[in-house]
Amino acid sequence: MNFGELNLVKEKGPRHFHLGASALLAALFCAFLGVPQSSARSIDPTLKHSVVHAAQLRALPPLRIDVAASAKVSLSVKTEFSSIKREAIALKAAKAAFARARLRRISLDYARPTSNYRLTARFGERSRLWGGNIHTGQDFAAPYGTSVRAAEAGTIIFAGWDGGYGRKIVINHGGQVQTWYGHLSSINVRVGQHVKVGQFIGRVGASGNATGAHLHFEVRRYGVPINPVNWLRAVGIWV
């Protein structure tokens, strides 16, 4: 075989190409030096002999390239990747559906504290109306006398007048969680009474430190005020 030629010998049967070891090594050597194979004859004969001799000493086996098998492997990898991608999408959709179903079930245990409202003073705001301190709840502006309902089942632990809160109700829900309802015009529960979620407990008013009819709704965990809107939305109640 001429050193400057790279012959591909097609075998019978499956599509295989057979490369002689010395021819392959010579071709790679030419490519490494940047010498065109057509110019291989200009290489020093001693160098060519050394390259061929080195290949013979290493007894390199012929390189066999199975085109059909390679195509099958490539197709198999693509098919497997597509299958994994479809399974990942299906799993993501299933998790989202499960989360929605779980949230719907949980939301049955909670309720909006009032209706016909608009959100006004928000949690964390500062105002001279409460001495420049941080607002510890969420105000629901609603018509005077609108029903106020228990946001979660629990036990009434306070029902009466409390300074700037005016007429106030506090419900203990267990787990160190309480909800407060302030500025009421009337209170329709008593201390020690157990109330169900959504049960009527009083009416919106403007008692205490209030400039208009609204419900001051407050949520406390371990005695610390937390954002009531976030608390409601976390259990599937959108306000």
Rank of each mutant, 00 (worst) to 15 (best):
residue 167 R to P: 00
residue 188 N to V: 03
residue 148 V to K: 05
residue 214 H to L: 06
residue 225 P to Y: 09
residue 171 I to E: 00
residue 164 G to Y: 10
residue 144 Y to H: 14
residue 151 A to C: 15
residue 164 G to I: 13
residue 140 F to D: 01
residue 220 R to H: 11
residue 195 V to Y: 05
residue 221 R to S: 05
residue 197 V to K: 14
residue 213 A to M: 02
residue 226 I to A: 04
residue 222 Y to F: 12
residue 195 V to D: 04
residue 216 H to M: 07
residue 235 V to T: 11
residue 199 Q to F: 12
residue 144 Y to M: 14
residue 234 A to Q: 14
residue 156 I to G: 01
residue 134 I to T: 12
residue 192 G to Q: 08
residue 218 E to L: 13
residue 180 W to L: 14
residue 212 G to C: 03
residue 200 F to N: 13
residue 139 D to I: 07
residue 216 H to F: 08
residue 149 R to I: 13
residue 225 P to G: 08
residue 142 A to P: 00
residue 144 Y to L: 15
residue 189 V to Y: 08
residue 216 H to G: 12
residue 157 I to S: 05
residue 156 I to E: 01
residue 194 H to I: 07
residue 133 N to L: 11
residue 137 G to W: 04
residue 213 A to P: 14
residue 206 A to C: 01
residue 154 G to F: 06
residue 161 W to H: 10
residue 218 E to S: 07
residue 231 W to K: 09
residue 200 F to G: 02
residue 186 S to K: 13
residue 154 G to W: 05
residue 149 R to S: 12
residue 139 D to T: 07
residue 178 Q to N: 12
residue 196 K to W: 10
residue 183 H to F: 09
residue 220 R to L: 09
residue 195 V to Q: 04
residue 184 L to S: 03
residue 185 S to Y: 02
residue 163 G to R: 13
residue 154 G to I: 04
residue 167 R to T: 00
residue 180 W to Y: 14
residue 163 G to Y: 09
residue 147 S to K: 12
residue 222 Y to H: 12
residue 133 N to P: 00
residue 176 Q to A: 14
residue 174 G to T: 08
residue 142 A to W: 03
residue 180 W to V: 08
